[in-house]
Nucleic acid binder design. Structure first.
Lengths: 139, 139
DNA sequence: ATGATAATGAAATACATTTTCAATAAGGAA
DNA sequence: TTCCTTATTGAAAATGTATTTCATTATCAT
């Protein structure tokens, strides 16, 4: 089953109606190699669905984020872009030159987290790691 | 030498004038255990320097950020707060209950980064790790 | 096919940040 | 010290980003 369909099924399970705007945004997010801002999505979406409203982009991103399907990308310049979420122990890598995102399925950070827990007394509940560099093409 | 003085010297070396607003903000950032937003800083600063302008807070944070003395903190709710920057291989931990920040000096990411470089072809230039959990007091 | 209501888009609003600019103050030169 | 240059400042305006409101539309269970 195409990934877009899986996302739409999750939306349906959550009790959401499947609409044209949502289909459009899901499709764009599933297939994008680059992080996209709400405005990026708005512009791209209107190519195939001219009536798309910017508010709907925000609302749909919020739902997809709640479902863990997309996540906000954090960059020096700002934190306004979204990307397909990393699954399990994947980590996101962003190319600083072309913007392409890649997912690396590396070790989990369990050992480090555990060490921090025991040495610092801090009880870590959540962590995120983001990597910035040059992709193969841009080196 | 107090850390505030060190920061001010770095500002001077950069060619900046040492002003009352800058002293005030530096002092607040050096001594804060919690991440602070521009508005937080604005409010706190006016306690000792009532004429402080919000724009100056933004401008000073930008300079301190360029000098690597403060860094933006990334949280689910948004990325509008700043903290003394982590040095070397320190990583920032934030308490999700009281907001207190702690710095943990544990590397171990070198191996992971190296592995990613060789396996993915991606050349990692920078990495950010941020940890969220409960500090000793809040557990 | 119908109807209840979730979802939508546009406008208004709220919030965050940056730009502009005249007045002020820092700090080197006299 | 006093003067002068100019970086810095604060206020207002402008820009950019995100959310709320609300009447209209479209989904989907019946």
């Amino acid at each position: 089953m195409p990934e877009s369909e899986q996302w739409l099924e999750l939306l349906e399970e959550k009790g959401c109606r499947i609409t044209e705007p949502r289909r459009t945004i899901v499709d764009l997010m599933v297939h994008s190699d680059n992080a996209l801002s709400p405005i990026d999505l708005f512009d791209k979406a209107r190519a195939s669905f001219p009536k798309m409203g910017l508010v709907t982009v925000y609302r749909t991103l919020e739902i997809l984020n709640q479902l863990g399907l997309v996540e906000r990308v954090h960059q020096k310049g700002g934190c306004h872009m979204y990307l397909r979420a990393a699954n399990g122990h994947e980590h996101i890598m962003l190319c600083t030159r072309c913007g392409q995102a890649a997912y690396f399925h590396g070790d989990d950070l369990g050992a480090l987290i555990h060490k921090i827990n025991s040495e610092s007394g801090f009880l870590i509940q959540e962590h995120w790691l983001q990597l910035h560099g040059l992709c193969k093409n841009c080196q």
